[in-house]
Design a protein around this nucleic acid. Structure first.
Lengths: 217, 217, 217, 217
DNA sequence: CATGAATGAGGCTTCATTCAT
DNA sequence: CATGAATGAAGCCTCATTCAT
């Protein structure tokens, strides 16, 4: 008991008073590295097997750390999920932004192509996001962020469509976004059996060709 | 009284020597009722909280039966899920059912309207399916079922589109299905903020108007 | 409620007052048949899979009756086991008895051969007995019966051996009985890999040949 | 004090950067102790009440650990049984171990005496093995293990008997093993009423006396 | 800060037993 | 007397979490 107490006293002292800034920095680095490690491992497994089918032990094993270590960085498994979700959303953020001095067709084309590129390259992240968005109703903040994004996109796209002469640009924008979401959903769940390239080309063909100015012309 | 006694004697003899005390039909009814009861309870909870977050005990409690009873009707929790999934997919069947007497436009319109009607009335079932579809890795049978459906739908719809003179009916069919899936996904996750009616009308407008026979006119 | 009450009144009346002796006899026969049926089914399954690995439902299924029926004849699963054990012991009883006006050699030979014959023909019964004797310590009466039998056998056999001139007939009798028990045990647990015929012949050769009167003669 | 402080700093650094907080050896010791603890508890209960009548919870309670701990060391209850069985059979190994410097008589005597010694000192283990052997249908691995042992023993013993001039050494070996198994079975089930010492002496007398070279002399 | 042994609540499932008909 | 649906206790096992070192 005495021994144990001393040990903790000195651990604290070491941390607060004695250790040089350099050592502190070292610790910080180790900390960050471990945390990153765990996050990556968890993202992979959540995306692959889902949140509930992934155990903390599996995450730790994949990250090659002990299973108790996670609790140094995250207060619980759910808190880990929260962290990953936040990180994931921030990455998605970078992707969706747009605007340049292009023609409406080109803007639409660019957006569509970028969307499918992301769908191709960030599958793991997206799959997890999709899963999360559906498994954890409790995560209101996820819903909020998605809602906000949705509104922005509709406004952006309908502007382009209006410029192209669409009769009902807002509805058409909603349609286009629904199509892309659907393609994403299908591709992420059903994988290769979805003709994702054909869908992309058809989308571009339908929306990014001049003659579309009016349908009943 | 005499008559009544005779009646009971007969009943007794019949029961003892000839037929089971409870007729097969009675048992059948009881079974069907219990099974339906459990299925409904499970569907509600799976849809609300997801498969893994719903315990067998919770299903039983909601159905107001003992926790062991489920195993009289389903060999496991997963088997229960399987039954619900099958039921859900059978509903999808009704959507795409083609009526040969109608014109291609009308067939498409009918399909689209049926789809949105189902989306409106069977939200619980669809929400569960969506949830399950994200845990597809764990449930091969779900994947198989959905794949089969998907292929059939593409074939059906592309036939209609071909009749309408579309250049690339298969790609356009995939696109249409993706759009509907996307609308479903959005509606089920984001709820009322999705202009689902506008999307439906726009879809019908785009696909079920004669002059669409060709885009490069 | 009224209906139900009437039903039971009349059931009773039928049994007590109305039904002819003939019908009573019929019932008795049905009863006996069902009971026998269940006992046989249980013996088979207990012998094959053991008491704990056999469920009441399995017994009922094999007997082609409902699982509740067992409780009309036996108050519990254990009570059923008790009944079977008693029946089994009574059958074994018939087997072990002996005595005639034969020579000691012949008496021994006869006993040995009979033992191995029983071992060959009543495997199911014996296997269950062996299992029971070891799984259910609570069944004191089993132990008692076996003990009594053991004492009798030792006395019988040692008398024969003494007549044959063995120095230590009691010890030799114990040895012989142990050997037979061991052969039985091995045969019932390990099955065909035990050279049961060779053991039998060797036993007869060792014990039932005149020149054995003394070993160091 | 200064010195002490330095010491702890060092300890801390070492722990953080170089070695695990608890050394591998420490963990190994803890594991071994816990495992042994659980094995002992399980052996006792299996031997006393049988495998199926012993619950994992009971094993844990007797070992004074939590009920989940068993699964840190054994993948299932059956796997625990497997471990105990293996241990038990390894003891049997020691019995039959042959010493080439000795005469055949002495080897046999040694074997027999060792057998009865084990029967006297390891009753618990043997009782468990006997119990398990009656549920062999459920545990293929037990059967395999015992079969292997049996074959080896027959070979070993028949070699000795052949050296002693027995006509039919294999059959005689089978007989001898059957006798020992029978003595074991009787002793473990019927306890003190079996004249186990007399049996042992008689066995030694019969098999380990020179003049036995031939029976038909 | 890092480890992994230990905990124990809770999940899925089985099954002896009851009971209305 | 016979049925089998229904019960619920208890079993095996998993896993998030804690804690001594």
């Amino acid at each position: 008991m005495e021994k144990s107490r001393k040990y903790y006293i000195f651990t604290t002292l070491v941390q607060l008073l004695i250790m040089s800034p350099k050592t502190n920095k070292q610790f910080e680095e180790i900390r960050e590295k471990s945390k990153e490690n765990i996050l990556r491992s968890a993202l992979h497994l959540f995306s692959e097997k889902g949140y509930f089918s992934t155990s903390v032990r599996q995450i730790a094993q994949r990250a090659k750390v002990s299973s108790g270590l996670m609790y140094n960085y995250f207060s619980s498994k759910e808190s880990l999920l929260r962290a990953i979700t936040q990180k994931a959303l921030s990455i998605v953020d970078e992707i969706v932004d747009t605007d340049e001095i292009l023609s409406p067709e080109d803007n639409l084309r660019k957006m569509i192509e970028r969307f499918f590129e992301v769908l191709d390259t960030k599958r793991k992240l997206l799959r997890m996001m999709l899963k999360i968005s559906f498994q954890i109703e409790r995560f209101d903040f996820v819903k909020e962020m998605i809602e906000r994004k949705y509104q922005l996109n509709v406004k952006d796209i309908s502007r382009h469509l209006q410029a192209l002469g669409y009769d009902n640009p807002e509805a058409e924008a909603s349609l286009l976004i629904a199509t892309m979401d659907g393609a994403m959903y299908q591709s992420l769940t059903l994988g290769k059996m979805i003709p994702i390239d054909a869908i992309r080309q058809q989308l571009i063909h339908n929306y990014c060709t001049k003659s579309h100015t009016s349908e009943e012309e």
